[in-house]
Design a protein around this nucleic acid. Structure first.
Lengths: 257, 257
DNA sequence: GAAGCATACGTCCGCTTGAACAAAATGCAA
DNA sequence: TTGCATTTTGTTCAAGCGGACGTATGCTTC
């Protein structure tokens, strides 16, 4: 029923943090710090290697992701789990029964999918992960867009995806992102992904941006749109107050979960 | 890692058989027959209720599915597991690296998806279940069709699905079915599903029909096509020999897994 | 040679099962 | 209808089992 132990998830998550912070971890150090056996740390590192996040070296492991590169989905999934769940809860409450919803890709959107699976709505999710979460709901009418599937992310991109989105109108679209620049640009790591987000926004009556507070000020490659053009922004306590104040001044409805 | 115990699966499967055969099961009888505690049978029946297969009554449970109605996906998945795996293996061996493959929906196709996930191919699966299995493969280029998603089955149907399929050409399509009539009609339970299968066949250079032998002679609502028009049929030892002989005479390549 | 690593095995923990018991539902009689 | 006997059900707890972790030992690499 379960993939992993709770503590195992916690250890792996902290190893990833250390890798991203210092570029490397040592087996002995981590073992002492986590209060676990060295053998256990080695087994954890094997997982990271299998997921392509780290390369094993004698005595530890080094980061394989270059600066700014996106973590694999399976890793981000373990990050800020609680914040995502709270944000998802708030987003779900914004959506009425009977609405047609467009749902972006990303781990936050999977959380949202889980939260709205209990409602009676029509949803087009942009990722297979979100689709799986929605499929559990009995009242959900699930519509899939076509498209090429980005590995790992399992997000639809490409012309087929854009055409599928253009063929429908959404009452609400919920968008996630990799970061929001200081200038207020909503950013994505992938150009194809950014195009899909823009298509979603173009087909939407109401647009919701959902992101945990740590993403404010974080950089990424592709510009999606100005954050101030969204109707609603849902974030958490980690978001900088001055940014939110400016958004409110621009007429954006801001929620903190 | 695992959803359930082996014996638990076996028990539930036998309960479903009994339900379909007699329309009802008794807790006490089943407990004696299976050599399990009554309490365990009750817990098993809870699962069937949760999946909508049975309704609980005092002392047992009664069948909720009308005659001929298709079992829910989650139940069929537990059926003929071994045969499906062997059939999937043979189908996978028919497919060369680099091919573009169209993959139908159904539990047998999920098995096929698992078998070809290790290859380097481009695949468009018609169900989310198969998509999940394929996503695990690193060498697979995954293309999703759009469409409405049949609940439980998670199979794409409708105009969007037909359009997505029409937009591509497959080297090989692998088709599953609910049954093959005595007259040689390939049958499906759902009209939308049958239309999708026909669209797949229309976009294919080579067509493969994969079905376990128990499906020969089994009825269903919708006609897809004559079985003799397929290029290849993959089945198992349970298939009646005379039917296969006639197929061979019609020029169909027949494999028994 | 020393440090790190992989394998083997013992231990611990959580899940499933079965048994015992209390609660609820049904049948029967008045 | 009420009261009682009986069957079924849900709950709780102990036993069994499998997976994860830690330790020990031999092997590899520097």
């Amino acid at each position: 029923m379960y993939d992993q132990d709770m503590e195992a998830v916690e250890r792996v998550s902290r190893l990833v943090d250390a890798l991203r912070r210092d570029g490397r971890v040592e087996v002995a150090t981590a073992a002492v710090e986590f209060g676990a056996a060295e053998m256990t740390i080695r087994r954890d590192l094997d997982q990271l290697v299998a997921r392509g996040v780290a390369r094993r070296v004698r005595g530890g492991a080094i980061n394989l992701l270059m600066r700014g590169e996106e973590l694999p989905f399976a890793m981000r999934e373990l990050d800020a789990v609680d914040a995502k769940r709270r944000i998802a809860r708030v987003v779900a409450d914004l959506i009425d029964d009977g609405e047609a919803v467009g749902l972006d890709s990303g781990t936050t959107m999977v959380a949202v999918a889980g939260a709205i699976a209990a409602k009676r709505v029509t949803v087009m999710p942009l990722s297979l992960h979100a689709a799986s979460a929605l499929a559990a709901g009995t009242g959900v009418q699930l519509i899939m867009p076509g498209g090429a599937c980005r590995p790992g992310e399992l997000a639809m991109v490409g012309p087929l995806a854009l055409a599928s989105i253009a063929a429908v109108r959404f009452d609400t679209v919920v968008i996630g992102c990799c970061g929001v620049s200081a200038e207020g640009h909503v950013l994505a790591h992938d150009l194809g992904d950014a195009a899909v987000k823009q298509a979603l926004l173009a087909s939407a009556n109401r647009s919701v941006l959902a992101l945990d507070g740590a993403k404010f000020g974080r950089g990424a490659l592709a510009v999606v749109q100005e954050v101030s053009t969204f109707d609603v922004v849902v974030t958490d306590d980690a978001a900088p107050e001055n940014v939110l104040a400016r958004l409110r001044a621009d007429g954006v409805e801001v929620h903190r979960a």
